[in-house]
Amino acid sequence: MWAIVMRALAQEGSQAQAVEELFLQLHDEQSWKHKFNQNKSSAFDDEEQKLLAEMYGSTIVAWSKQGNVDRIKYWIEKLNISPDGSLPLNLAAQVAIVIMYCNARDPIKAEKYVNELEAAYEKGEIVAPPDTIMCNMILNAWAQRNNGDRAASFFEKNIKEPDVVSYNTVINAFARQGNLAKAEQWAYELVASFCENSLESRRPQQATFTVILAAWRRSKDRNAAERATKVLMQMHQLYDNSILLHKPDFKSYQTVLDTWEKSSSRDAAQKAEEFLSSSPDFRDNKRLRSKVRNMRSRERKRNRTVNESNNTNSANKIMR
């Protein structure tokens, strides 16, 4: 019952003090007090040791939600010496600490902590190494900092069994950083990895590429529209080869057309129309067709303005 109540309270971000006080009360309970005083693992049976590990974990989870590093360190130290240092830091507590650092936008400390967990696993102090889900949290923290280089470095050093989320997060980090060459490189590394070993957990997704399309739309690269178009065509090829499970959707086409719309190319509207006409799925889509017509209209107006300006300049030169 104690463990259940503590676990429930630990999920409330404001209840860390209550969780700690409840655990301290347990230390003074007559049936447990003499066991804690013995400070030996043999004083607790297997079931009691599991409950103790969970209660230590709940206390650490609770303080993690408040971001109180000092109390976390205090309870980890208590865990390491009671009883006989035989109780492991449970997974819930490990994850909570990583989340705490990531929420604080401090992936450096999150990385350091995961490396400490890896070392503890190698020493036999915890039962399992940091898993892919935990490591993906750190990748996402680097993505939030727009740092693809650090995300890629952490991926290569720490993640032994990456999944599609791992790759997608590095891709997103490079896309946010503005390094689209690297983002595309990682996307095709994911494709190659899946082709080599067709694990469903590593199957490329629409999101693998739509994040790149969106980044090209934001990009000021003069070739952004051509690059976005190429990515979308490659998505079709991957679908035809049964690697992607779904064709590029309306949003993907809209993103590419948006990229053509902001292009400085003089024939951007024409290329956008050719691009849309090449799609059997969306060439008759009214919204996309309307978008291209508007692009054509603006392009004609712009060209007329340029021509009128040129004619005026020519006339002025003749008059001089």
Rank of each mutant, 00 (worst) to 15 (best):
S252I: 09
Y101Q: 03
T210P: 00
L213H: 05
A187L: 12
D45G: 10
A268I: 02
L52M: 13
I171N: 15
A151M: 07
D163N: 15
E116A: 09
C135A: 15
R218G: 14
V69Q: 14
S31Q: 02
E274Y: 12
F275G: 06
N307A: 09
V170L: 14
E308T: 05
S86H: 01
N241L: 02
S264G: 09
E118Q: 13
A215D: 01
N90R: 11
A152R: 09
R266G: 00
E116Y: 02
R320F: 11
D240W: 06
E77P: 00
S219T: 11
N241S: 07
R304T: 05
S297F: 15
S290K: 12
L22C: 00
Q254S: 09
Y101A: 12
N241D: 07
W75T: 02
Q237D: 14
N197R: 12
V5L: 15
A110E: 05
W142F: 13
W63V: 06
R302M: 14
D28R: 10
N68V: 10
P248N: 01
D70K: 11
P130S: 11
S290Q: 14
N285T: 12
R218C: 03
M319V: 15
E308H: 04
K50A: 09
R300M: 07
K78H: 08
M295S: 06
A181H: 06
M55G: 00
R320K: 13
K247V: 08
V61S: 00
G13Q: 14
K230G: 00
K286G: 04
P107R: 09
Y74N: 11
K301F: 08
Q11E: 13
A93R: 05
I133F: 06
K301M: 13
A128T: 14
